[in-house]
Design a protein around this nucleic acid. Structure first.
Lengths: 401, 401
DNA sequence: AAATATAATTTAATACTTAAAATAAGTCTT
DNA sequence: AAGACTTATTTTAAGTATTAAATTATATTT
């Protein structure tokens, strides 16, 4: 948020306060808004009237009263605008349409082929997918506030927005510009883990937590970090690249070219490699194989036990390092592999973290699993748009400021 | 900074903008303030008149003019208030007195004895030291805005402020309260590395850098992290505990009880241990021994070369991990051992970091040595007080807000 | 139907910012 | 040396914001 220097900025700030409060805490009466935000009643009346008039808010009936005028409930108007969230995956692209209250309205899933020019294919898919969603919901493009995209690469914010993704040989592609031209809607792009972290922080298990980290374990490993209630991006938006931090000096070779990266041990391929080293014979399909490993562990299979214990150790140290550096108040574990592993050994993992991190940093720390399901990345991507709407709102709904 | 909701908050915010601008950019004319802060000329007049009247600012003569009324230069009044900064060390306590422009006025050094009750001794030293400084400068206690203390332990902000320092067997001592009572002045305490980071960010090599990390290598290892131009503290003020992040699985035993901590390899005792492992015979005195090692390395001694190369590797990976997670735009290396090592192999170290961190995070990264000298911790500790003065200023200099 | 209670809006007072006008304080020209 | 000119700073008038208090609205209770 920009520094406030003029009186008109104040109104804008207070409008944001009210809008965000409603967005994160649900509908409520003006009276409650006033009490919870510490804005005066008159203030709330003024701001809400403006927002009611511009259609961002609606009145939603009365509260029960036990004597006295009943409180009128105001809420965000879900139909004031719509958001598209995209999970740009390696094998498929999921697109979801949300209303302004983040209700999921419809979905479309587009398969990805192995082609020469992946970028062209993805742009084509996005164009088709957005059209599809608008058709399904019967919405015209003007009603769409923007398209948020979560990608499995590194998104650089450096003048323009560019994406680097090794598996597609993207070094620094100006994806945002290209997609925006093709789709004809405002586009926001960020790393999938960051998008998911935002979703988890706003609408998942991390509601109201000021400092937390979300850890995403799948084929690759990602992390998103929330500080002071907001996504932490660092200088060029590549903060939180936890997967390739090294925890074993001269350790296992990682696909990134480095040695001893966390990902080489904790990512699904790494876990299966450990299993093979321990004499196990995992299936080819990563998802099935990790599931079987966790099953075997829970049945008490000695090989699986050894593999899982080593995994706990490495992952626990990795998390402890994160905790020592960021001192979050909560860690959330997600991703398909993360949920499988975390479900099986959350207690052991917590113990290992507490053993390896500073006592003062772990005293108030809680470790839990992510709440949002399969479409967390889509939700998070839509949150990128929502964030923009919440901050820039006044530019769209009021005069010249 | 608190959210601004009232019109009076605006004036407070704008006062801070001007005060900070003068503090970090030096004296300048009202005109320049107006241009650089984007506040209107009238605004600057109003705020500066208030600050002139309350004695926080002074007028300091005229600028050269080539036609037209010359600009009057305003500046922070160095004699409006004074700050005491303390470096609470294991062998000695250094106290320094600064004026409001951070000019060092006088110093006192108090030796520390090995006693039963260290806490009582330190409080006694602080009391005596502050008295001493005020005597030397001929100042009454009312003129002292506060005492900032940098301690070599972990300072918890959790309701009250408490300090944990293993070497003195302090688990969670209410040091702030005790010192405040004894000294009779407002006291601010933080970890020494954090204090130093603040100083380096405000008045050292990190001026104007929004995201950076300062690394302190001595007997122990510390780090301080600046994000968005401010010290990053995490949930309970124990963020940045980099020294005990693990980079070698099942590695060398660390004095913290863990295994493979960075400190066990990069802290002075760790470096000397590596030297012994390589067949070297370092002196007993850490400071002398590390100096000799660096000398030997620069003379081309093969053993020293091996030790230093391994050290570069470990330190480089540790920094790379930090870079991957925080994505700073600058890393500064300080501490007595850090300056020795960094001076000798900054280039190798930089190369190692670039090799082990993500290309996107290192593209704009620069690694350099700290600028502030011996008394960086004292300066930083005084900055803790200055920070408070700059933010709370209005509470002291204006009415009831 | 009147009394009472609470919510929401309006009003009157006050504070802050700014653009423009006025004033201050120099240099330059003649 | 006086007046013209230039630029800095202050003052002023207008506009916008917030808030406490008064008012109005809308329910329940008696």
């Amino acid at each position: 948020m920009k520094p406030l220097r003029r009186t008109v900025d104040l109104r804008q700030a207070n409008t944001q306060v009210i809008l965000r409060h409603l967005c994160f805490n649900g509908s409520m009466s003006r009276m409650e808004i006033s009490l919870q935000t510490q804005l005066s009643a008159g203030m709330v009346t003024n701001v809400t009237s403006e927002l009611l008039q511009s259609g961002v808010l609606i009145e939603k009936g009365l509260e029960e009263s036990s004597g006295g005028r009943p409180r009128t409930i105001v809420d965000i108007n879900p139909r004031h605008g719509y958001l598209i969230g995209v999970d740009l995956g390696e094998t498929q692209v999921a697109l979801e349409l949300f209303d302004l209250k983040m209700n999921k309205l419809c979905t479309t899933l587009e398969p990805v082929a192995q082609e020469e020019d992946m970028l062209a294919q993805y742009i084509c898919i996005l164009q088709r997918g957005c059209q599809n969603l608008m058709m399904q919901a019967g919405l015209s493009p003007e009603k769409i506030l923007g398209v948020g995209i979560g990608v499995p690469g590194i998104v650089e914010h450096n003048g323009q927005v560019s994406v680097a993704a090794p598996m597609w040989n993207w070094r620094s592609e100006p994806v945002l510009e290209l997609v925006e031209q093709a789709v004809g809607l405002p586009v926001y792009i960020d790393n999938g883990a960051k998008a998911m972290t935002l979703a988890e922080s706003w609408f998942g298990a991390g509601r109201g937590v000021q400092d937390m980290a979300v850890i995403l374990i799948g084929t690759g490993i990602g992390a998103g970090i929330i500080t002071k209630g907001a996504l932490y991006r660092g200088a060029t938006n590549s903060a939180g690249e936890w997967g390739h931090t090294k925890i074993v000096l001269h350790g296992r070779q990682c696909r990134c070219g480095g040695q001893g990266c966390l990902e080489a041990y904790v990512g699904a391929p790494g876990i299966l490699a450990s299993q093979r080293e321990a004499g196990g014979h995992p299936q080819d399909d990563q998802f099935v194989a990790v599931g079987q490993l966790v099953d075997a562990y829970q049945r008490g299979d000695p090989t699986a036990e050894r593999v899982m214990q080593d995994l706990t150790q490495v992952l626990g140290i990795g998390i402890a390092n994160l905790v020592n550096l960021f001192n979050p108040e909560r860690i959330e574990i997600g991703g398909w592999a993360g949920l499988l592993i975390g479900g099986a050994l959350l207690d052991d993992l917590t113990a290992c973290v507490k053993q390896n991190a500073l006592p003062l940093s772990t005293k108030e720390l809680s470790i839990s699993l992510c709440q949002l399901g399969e479409d967390a990345i889509c939700t998070g991507a839509a949150c990128l748009v929502l964030e923009e709407f919440l901050s820039a709102n006044l530019k769209f709904n009021r005069g010249i400021y």
